[in-house]
Design a protein around this nucleic acid. Structure first.
Length: 824
RNA sequence: GCCCGGGUGGCGAAAUUGGUAGACGCAAGGGACUUAAAAUCCCUCGGUUCUCACGAACCGUGCCGGUUCGACUCCGGCCCCGGGCACCA
């Protein structure tokens, strides 16, 4: 029996305690059951749960619980992406240690998440700031070092002056730090790099295997930026060297009238030695190079280096210019310039009076009528033996020619850069390396792992660098035993989130990073998170997965089979933020309405991928609905569950119709869940309750077939409670247990669609005349076209339109419509 | 500039992928219950016009055109909004 009023706070607490005590959502590998790994991106423990989290985790929970209702072995783990800057800032501001601050936040957020009733296996909880997690990260980094995937390099890096640290390219947005928003400076620093470029090709081709939103795949494809082309070697005989240039248009090679090199190029530096003008120019380039956005609009400038190169085919002498538009970190920092067929080269050549040569003519146009520069493919001219070839063919033929003459080869270039992972921060994973005067760079031996982050730090005004802690950085060299210095940078925190999904499968394994359980669980069947990670986390994790695979630790190519990117939560049309003061407090809402209301609202209001506009009255609407569900169950509990199965062939038409509606809604909800179109699943629940209400009203008026009514009410409520279960598990479980369904049917499982219920004796068709809706008719479901045609023509409303007209043809779409085409 | 998404009532959105546009909900208005309020329940709710009325006609999915018996859906050309990339050779 249940009480009359819906008290979400009481029933939710009761349900959650029960789940906790029974460890309902803890899972183990079970080869007899199909597994489903459902993962939502783990949070940074900021200390409070915001509505974006709630949306994200509710979507994940709906998907996970839906799979569970299909008897799958569902893993839904949760953890904490616990390293990061805010902990250090809090330490400075509040005088707490980053560790304590983080752990307190985790404790609070764990309680908050539990109040939402997510079906997590809490046994597997991961905290990335604990050494039993990051020790394996250190281990893995050393393995990658041994594989040749890790190196140290002196490089010009993105320096965030606010956070006082280096950022990866992916973390620089519009020339500003992704977290701090400070304008990024260029600095030269020695730091650790991971060779993600070694996997560029696979990272791009394997995108085809993924069931991910196109938008995300396209963004990754662009980010990796593969271009097919050719390397061409220009000899520089006077300097006894040569220049390697990359071009995608080798067919225009004979049009190359000069070469351009970046101001950072070795040859440029050399040219500057004895030429003060060049020195000034290079210096000017370096100071103007600030934000990338400015660079696009910057004026193209250059200076003659004085060096010349030999054209590999024509053997002509071409000048080498130093130009500010040549990127030093793409290709070799040198390009061949073809002013006749490239806008930028054209502008440059005009400015500095360099020769312009046309080597391609339009297929349809005469050579003299064309406007320069001609950018498209065409037919080769002025290219000696290659004249007459079309561009595509010429690219192949000329590449062959260059290969034969040792002056080039076909090449693929990527825009992707290696990943700089050193951060000059305290609160992160220590990089497990030691610098010894004698032995050089020495990895920390495996038995000495983990390199533990010291937590007895003194909180100072500014920074908490490990380089201040003698006891940390002063170590004996593992090789020679002499005093050496430990690396004091820590890892980019994106490394922790690059492999946590795998660790969830081996969470309690203390002897190795991963064990064979990953073969059962991986890959993640459904991953859920924000689009903002399209080229950061989602690319890094794919890369780590491939490295783990190549180490033989896992056996899947990709970590996340299917991806759902959920939209933002907005209020008054803009993103919720503390600074705008438009935030809502999820915990206060749970106090007032209960978690189920919040969950229902966030599923119902918008499709998962779209942004969701927060609305207080919308939350109340969800609450009203759950109250109605409760009230309906209360009002009918005497007859529930009803155990007389009607003879459907004898039951009345309204009951049959209701039954059809109920099962159609079940079908719709099932189909929509497969498509992850969750908002319409919620609306199906509402429609279902409306239909049950109609049935209940009918039962009051008519007493003839009361048993049939009662059976259908009982069956319909059973279906409703199960469809609701993934969205609002508390109310659903509670009613299931307390109004007798549990005893009668056992545990909930997704209802079978009774296809007979979907069949109707009569069906309604619309009648169109010349494509315009004119009437509706009802015909027997098995009526043939002749009967339908006659019924349509006989309809009073339709007749009006047919008078004095000639029927040209009649189109019948089965179960849908009749369209009568007429003419005067 | 290039590459992706989107434009549907007052609002959030739906439409079985070419077949009743606006389901479901929110807001609003009206009514019932109540001494009153809240809660709850019932009705109306894209626009214009005609009709005392039952009702009917036309228009309507950013704009213009096309294909089709039939277009929110497909094609061509524009206009806005959001996102990504941007001297990438």
């Amino acid at each position: 029996m249940i009480k009359e009023n819906y008290h979400p706070q009481l029933i939710e607490t009761e349900c959650q305690q029960k789940w906790d005590n029974d460890n309902t959502y803890a899972v183990r590998e079970d080869e007899t059951k199909e597994k489903f790994y459902c993962l939502a991106m783990f949070p940074y423990p900021s200390g409070s749960l915001h509505v974006g989290h709630i949306r994200n985790y509710t979507i994940g929970d709906v998907i996970g619980r839906y799979q569970r209702l299909h008897q799958k072995n569902v893993l839904q783990p949760m953890g904490w992406d616990a390293f990061g800057l805010p902990a250090e800032n809090a330490a400075i501001q509040h005088g707490v240690s980053p560790k304590n601050w983080t752990n307190e936040n985790i404790a609070i957020m764990r309680e908050h998440l539990k109040k939402l009733g997510f079906a997590y296996d809490w046994d597997r909880e991961i905290n990335t700031s604990q050494s039993d997690y990051y020790r394996w990260e250190q281990w893995l980094f050393i393995k990658m070092y041994e594989m040749g995937l890790v190196y140290r390099k002196n490089a010009i890096v993105n320096w965030d002056p606010a956070d006082q640290t280096v950022l990866a390219n992916e973390q620089v947005v519009d020339g500003k730090g992704w977290r701090s928003g400070a304008t990024i400076e260029q600095r030269e620093i020695t730091q650790w790099f991971i060779k993600i470029t070694a996997y560029a090709e696979e990272l791009i081709t394997d995108l085809d295997k993924l069931d991910w939103p196109d938008q995300v795949k396209i963004m990754q494809r662009n980010w990796i930026g593969r271009s097919h082309g050719c390397n061409v070697i220009f000899d520089v005989p006077n300097e006894n060297t040569s220049l390697d240039v990359f071009t995608t248009r080798v067919d225009t090679l004979l049009g190359a009238t000069y070469l351009a090199i970046s101001p950072n190029h070795v040859l440029a530096q050399q040219a500057a030695k004895h030429n003060p003008d060049i020195q000034t120019f290079i210096k000017a380039c370096q100071t103007t190079k600030v934000a990338e956005a400015d660079m696009a609009t910057m004026e193209k400038k250059g200076i003659n280096s004085g060096f010349t190169a030999v054209h590999p085919i024509s053997k002509a002498t071409v000048p080498i210019w130093i130009a500010n538009y040549v990127l030093s970190d793409y290709g070799s920092g040198a390009v061949m310039a073809v002013p006749g067929h490239d806008q930028r080269d054209f502008d440059f050549a005009r400015k500095y009076n360099l020769p312009i040569k046309t080597v391609i003519k339009d297929k349809n146009d005469s050579a003299d009528s064309q406007k320069l520069p001609l950018l498209l493919d065409g037919i080769l001219i002025n290219s000696g033996d290659f004249d007459g070839l079309d561009s595509a063919e010429a690219r192949r033929v000329m590449a062959d020619y260059l290969v034969k003459n040792n002056h080039g080869s076909p090449t693929i270039h990527y825009r992707l850069h290696d990943w700089g992972v050193s951060r000059q921060r305290y609160w992160g994973t220590p990089i497990p390396f030691i610098y010894c005067q004698q032995c050089g760079i020495v990895p920390v031996p495996e038995e000495q792992l983990p390199v533990v982050l010291p937590d007895n730090v003194n909180v100072k005004d500014k920074l908490l660098p490990l380089s201040d802690i003698d006891s940390f950085y002063k170590v004996d060299c593992p090789r020679c035993g002499k005093l050496a210095r430990r690396e004091t940078d820590t890892f980019d925190t994106f490394i922790e989130s690059s492999w946590y999904y795998a660790r969830f499968a081996s969470y309690d394994q203390h002897k190795k990073i991963l064990d064979q359980r990953v073969d059962y669980w991986l890959p993640v069947d459904q991953y859920i998170g924000g689009v903002e990670h399209a080229v950061l986390h989602l690319l890094y994790a794919r890369f780590f997965n491939k490295v783990l695979r190549d180490l033989g630790l896992i056996h899947t190519d990709e970590p996340f089979k299917r991806l759902l990117t959920q939209g933002m939560v907005l209020k008054d049309g803009s993103k919720m933020s503390k600074s705008k003061g438009n935030t809502v407090s999820p915990m206060a809402l749970i106090e007032e309405y209960g978690a189920d209301t919040l969950r229902f609202f966030s599923i119902f209001t918008a499709p998962p991928e779209q942004s969701l506009e927060w609305s207080d009255s919308g939350v109340e609407g969800a609450y009203r609905f759950l109250n109605r569900v409760w009230k309906f169950a209360f009002d009918h509990q005497q007859i529930l569950p009803y155990d007389h199965k009607p003879d459907w062939s004898k039951t009345s038409a309204p009951i049959k119709k209701s039954r059809c509606v109920i099962y159609s809604l079940l079908k719709q909800a099932s189909d929509d869940l497969k498509k992850l179109q969750l908002n319409t699943v919620a609306s199906a629940c509402m429609k279902l309750l409306n239909e049950l209400q109609t049935l209940a009203n009918g039962a009051q008026k008519e007493t003839e077939q009361l048993a049939d009514y009662h059976y259908l009410i009982s069956d319909g409520l059973r279906i409703l409670l199960i469809i609701l279960q993934p969205i609002t598990p508390h109310i659903s479980d509670y009613l299931w247990q307390n109004i007798g369904y549990q005893q009668h049917y056992g545990n909930q499982s997704w209802p079978k669609i009774d296809t007979k219920a979907l069949e109707q004796d009569n069906i309604a068709l619309i009648v169109q005349v010349n494509g315009k809706l004119r009437s509706k008719i009802t015909v027997p479901a098995n009526a043939d076209n002749a009967i339908i045609e006659n019924a349509a023509k006989a309809d009073e409303k339709v007749k009006k339109y047919l008078q004095n007209k000639q029927v040209v043809k009649i189109i019948i779409v089965p179960k849908r419509l009749v369209n009568i085409v007429i003419r005067d």
